[in-house]
Design a binder for these strands. Structure first.
Length: 460
RNA sequence: UCUCCUGUAGCUCAGUCGGUAGAGCAGGUGGCUGUUAACCACCCUGUCGGGGGUUCGAAUCCCUCCGGGGGAGCCA
């Protein structure tokens, strides 16, 4: 039988019954007659206070019970004299694992940079424990949102042999001997000798494969790891991250935006509902007002504007910006912030971008200049979701690919989708870690994933 | 990749005009009638990121390499 979690012990009414509490000691405070331990097992932010009456338990052995050690404590749940509701009045205690004094986590504040170097231990801190619990809630909420709405979870491949959409640099997957790469007569690498008989990479997006399943099962979503080999060194990029990509058949851009908005609100609501204690911690120690921001996002309809409207708003205040905008230019971080924080004061969905700055698969508008793409911009963070109605007309798609110099044979199966029973369909992608950052207020994306992978960093 | 900032005790940091390193926490010892990252007293802790240079003298100034961080680009 397993013992109770500390989270459940904290919700236990005082009684005579002997219970067991197991966990790691966060702090020990010694008085003349009384010793206090705070015991945490990660099941909740708050730990259980263990009270050791040394007068009553006169031959109790507390050797080795220090910050970081693990213990097995027995006692009864009693009403606390202190600020917590209940505490454990100890009857016996046993040290499970000692913790020498070179334990890096002390009972004081550490910087996240320091803890990043101790990634194998940082989950034992308040901050990283709370992030892990919230991340879990969000993960579960993503599945339950789509499941409750009849979407089918599809596992798209992690290794791909087509450089689809060119959404960034890819990691190559190979079993070739790099010390002795087989070359053809033209001096180029002979990939027919490689494992797959051709060049293979880690996926940068499951979208194109996702579309094939949407055009069979109507509403699908993917949720899995994604890889980008970009040399980007920011608080918002990882080389390995998780992405959520729903794809819906018989759905236009309006339907797409509707789902994106409901989806975000659902996930945020779940966190506020299930992790109030963790969220209060973030609000207090990480980002003041983060709960209010989330409540505001949940309760206000997202602002909609076309790219063209967004540009004309921004052009009026061009002198505020480092980069001036004009029709055709990208919307930069500073502009995203202006639109969400100054103009709308809530999330903004920008639609109908110039075709030049968006991917080949987005549906062409009748004006021949803009495409049916949409970005959901969140205050403070910028782009959190990117999506579009897909070009489902075979001739228009082929034309676009030609314009961009994409080879039809590389996308033969993607084109056949448009040849055989094509339908309008739409989808979007959400960077999971960015969503976790948004909800927790944690500044650096490297702190919302257990073991971050980025340029020159793959420790653990 | 560009750009700015930064590296001092186990951790968080101070160190002025260049004069030979310091506080809190942690650790140790003792004290304390129930504490809340307890408190009080005492003790312990250094390749000042590495290398080179300027100087009578460098944590401090210069060069260089390495590590960390912010911002930008790219994006999710």
């Amino acid at each position: 039988m397993r013992n109770m979690r500390i989270k459940d012990l904290l919700n236990t009414a005082p009684s005579e019954k002997i219970v067991v509490a197991e966990g790691w000691v966060r702090t020990r405070r010694d008085g003349k007659n009384v010793t206090f331990l705070e015991l945490n097992d990660g099941s909740s932010l708050k730990g259980l206070q263990v009270v050791i009456d040394k007068e009553k338990l006169n031959d109790i052995n507390l050797d080795g019970i220090s910050t970081g050690s693990s213990v097995h404590a027995e006692g009864v749940i009693v009403e606390s004299h202190g600020e917590q509701k209940v505490e454990l009045s100890l009857t016996s205690i046993a040290l499970i694992g000692e913790c020498p004094d070179d334990y890096p986590l002390q009972k004081k504040r550490h910087t996240v940079e320091f803890l990043r170097e101790k990634a194998h231990l940082r989950a034992r801190t308040n901050l990283f424990g709370a992030v892990a619990r919230v991340r879990n809630t969000m993960s579960y909420a993503i599945h339950s949102f789509f499941q409750e709405n009849g979407f089918v979870y599809v596992n798209t491949p992690i290794i791909t042999a087509s450089d689809c959409e060119g959404a960034g640099e890819q990691f190559q997957v190979t079993t070739l001997d790099l010390e002795n790469v087989p070359k053809g007569e033209d001096g180029k690498v002979d990939y027919t000798k490689d494992f797959f008989g051709k060049m293979a990479n880690l996926t940068v997006s499951g979208q194109l494969e996702g579309e094939t399943y949407a055009l069979a099962l109507k509403d699908i979503y993917t949720f899995g790891p994604t890889f980008r080999a970009e040399n980007s060194n920011t608080t918002r990029h990882l080389a390995e991250f998780w992405m959520v990509e729903p794809e819906m058949a018989f759905t236009d851009l309006y339907g797409d935006m509707e789902v994106a908005e409901k989806f975000l609100k659902y996930v945020f609501s779940r966190v506020l509902e299930k992790n109030p204690e963790d969220m209060a911690f973030f609000d207090n120690f990480v980002l003041k007002g983060v709960i209010e921001t989330l409540e505001h996002v949940i309760n206000s309809p997202f602002e909609h504007m076309t790219y063209t409207d967004a540009i004309s708003i921004l052009e009026k205040v061009n002198d505020k910006f480092e980069y001036q905008v004009h029709w055709g230019s990208d919307i930069q971080s500073e502009h995203e912030r202006y639109l969400t924080e100054v103009v709308a004061k809530r999330p903004v969905i920008v639609t109908d971008y110039p075709k030049e700055i968006k991917a080949f698969y987005m549906k062409m508008n009748d004006d021949g200049k803009t495409v049916r793409g949409m970005d959901v911009l969140a205050p403070r963070l910028g782009e959190i979701i990117g999506g579009s109605e897909r070009e489902w007309r075979l001739d228009v798609l082929k034309e676009r690919m030609q314009e961009l110099g994409l080879k039809e044979e590389d996308y033969w199966w993607y084109l056949e989708l448009r040849k055989f029973g094509s339908v309008p369909h739409s989808g979007f992608g959400l960077g999971f870690e960015r969503a976790v950052q948004y909800v927790t207020g944690v500044q650096n994306i490297r702190d919302v994933i257990p073991y971050p992978r980025y340029v020159k960093s793959a420790e653990f």
